[in-house]
Design a protein around this nucleic acid. Structure first.
Lengths: 248, 248
DNA sequence: GAGTGGTCTAGACCACGGG
DNA sequence: CCGTGGTCTAGACCACTCA
C-alpha cells in the first residue's frame, strides 16, 4: 500500500536500504539501527513487515538484536586457519603460534573425558566394538571472543595413563606424546564440510541464527596407516578462512 | 494460548515436531508436509505462527515450498570433493573422474570471456594494472542437478590464442596447455571460506535461503612461484565435503 | 476454479534489562 | 519504570499453477 516503483516486496526494500548503509560504511560496526517502531513509521508499514526485513539481516549475520537496547551492526573479522602447517615440526602448539602471528591473543579452556565414541569417530579410528576413547574438548578464544571448538579423540588403550588423558595443557603438544607411544603421525586425512550449528555450538561460539559452521575433521595415522587421533574443529564461517598448500 | 508444558515458543515446538518426523524417516525425501492452514488448525494457532516455524525449517534447508502445491521434504546427498588430487597426473579432468567414481553423472556448461579482474583475482595472480584476464566460467551438474560453479581466471597475455581462450571443452585439461606455455603448475595455494550465496549463485545452484556456500579458491603457480591461474569454486554446503591428504 | 504459499495490517501481551 | 524486541492473533488480498 506504499511506494512501489520497481516491484519488490517492502520488507526486502527495507533490508536492502539498511544493508547498503552498512556496506557503504554509513553504519559502522557497533552502530545502532533505528528501532522497529521508528522504521515502521518511516516506511509507513506495520511492525511485522519491518521485522521481516530485519530478520533477513539477522540471518545474514549483518546485524544483531540486543534487547532491550535495539539492533546493532555486527562486528566481524576473519582469521586464517593454516590447516596445512598447524602441526608442523617444532611447534608446541601451532594454533597458538598462528593466532599470535596475526597479532591476536589466543586462550583456551580444556575439558577431558572418557566416553563411548559415536559411529563417525570409531569408524575413522578403526576401533573394535566397545573400545572407549579419551576426548579432549577445547573451546578456543581469540581476544576473549569464542572462535572455535576443537575436540580430539584418542583410543583409550593407546593413551591410557599418558598426559593426554589428563585435563591439563599438554606441554609440547599431543603430537610428541603420541610419537613416544609408537604413534608418530605421518599422514592426516582432512575433511571439511559445512552445516548448521547445533544448539550447543550456537551457544558456545555465540553464532547468530542463519550462519553456518565449517567442520574440519582431521584423522592422523602413523606410518603403518594406524589412526590414533581424530580432531574435530568447528569454525564459524564468518570468523575463519582455511588455508592449504598443495604440491603437485 | 495453547499447551505449554515446558516453556518454549509454539512456533519452535511446531518446527521441532516436523524436524523430528523428518529425522526419524516418518517423513521421507519428497514427502509432502501438511499445509499451513492444516497445521494452524492442528496446533490451534494463527497461520503466522505456523509460518514462523516452517520458516526455520526452510532456512535449515530441510524443507522447501512449492507453491501452490505445498511444502515438501528436501532431498539432499553429499558428494566428496577431493581437493588434494583433483589435478593429479594423467587425469584429463579429475573432477569428472571423481564424480563418476561415486557412481554419478557429471555434465558442465562453459562460457569464456575476457574481462578486467577484480582486486582479489589480480592480487592472487600478481597482475600489473590494466592487465586483462581470460575467464572460463563453468556451471557443473551431477545427475543434471547444479552442484557447483567453477570459474578459472588466467592472465590474458599468457593464454592469448591458446585453446584456453576458446569456449570449448579443453582436451586434456588446462594443466597441460599451461605447462606447454611455460607455466607448469607445481604448487597450489588453497583457501576455503564460507559465506552466503549471492543472488546469482542462489539462482544458478538452486540454493534455498539460509544455506551457505563454501568458496574454494585455488591459486596455481610454477616452479618460479609465478601464478598463472586462480580457480574459484562455489559449493553449496550441503552438497559437498572437501577432502585433503596432508603429509607431515 | 480452487487452494497454495507470499505479503501485509493493526492490533495485543510479554519478558527482559537499562537507567 | 519504560521501551525494547519476541511472540501471537485474526483477519486481508494477491499471484501463481495445478487439475
Amino acid at each position: 500500500m506504499t511506494r512501489r516503483n520497481q516491484w519488490q516486496p517492502v520488507y526486502q526494500r527495507i533490508a536492502e536500504d539498511i544493508r547498503a548503509q552498512v556496506m557503504t560504511g554509513q553504519l559502522g560496526p557497533e552502530a545502532q539501527i533505528a528501532t522497529e517502531h521508528e522504521l515502521a513509521a518511516k516506511y509507513g508499514v506495520a511492525r511485522a513487515t519491518v521485522r521481516q526485513g530485519l530478520m533477513l539481516l539477522v540471518q545474514e549475520g549483518l546485524i544483531v538484536a540486543r534487547r532491550p537496547l535495539g539492533y546493532f551492526v555486527r562486528r566481524v573479522d576473519r582469521l586464517d586457519w593454516s590447516a596445512y602447517n598447524f602441526e608442523r615440526e617444532g611447534a608446541a602448539d601451532a594454533w597458538v603460534a598462528d593466532v599470535e602471528a596475526q597479532g591476536r591473543v589466543p586462550r583456551q579452556e580444556i575439558r577431558v573425558e572418557i566416553s563411548e565414541p559415536n559411529e563417525g569417530i570409531s569408524g575413522r579410528l578403526k576401533l573394535s566394538p566397545n573400545t572407549l576413547v579419551v576426548v579432549r574438548r577445547r573451546l578456543r578464544f581469540v581476544d576473549d571472543v569464542p572462535y572455535l571448538i576443537a575436540d580430539s579423540y584418542y583410543p583409550e588403550p593407546i593413551v591410557q595413563g599418558s598426559p593426554v588423558a589428563n585435563p591439563a595443557d599438554i606441554t609440547g603438544g599431543a603430537r610428541h606424546i603420541l610419537a613416544d607411544l609408537g604413534h608418530k603421525w605421518v599422514t592426516h586425512e582432512d575433511e571439511i564440510e559445512g552445516r548448521h550449528p547445533t544448539e550447543d555450538e550456537s551457544r558456545q561460539l555465540n553464532i547468530p541464527p542463519g550462519l553456518s559452521v565449517l567442520v574440519h575433521t582431521r584423522t592422523s595415522s602413523n606410518a603403518n596407516g594406524i589412526p590414533s587421533r581424530v580432531m574435530v574443529s568447528v569454525l564459524p564461517v564468518d570468523r575463519w578462512r582455511v588455508l592449504y598448500r598443495v604440491e603437485s
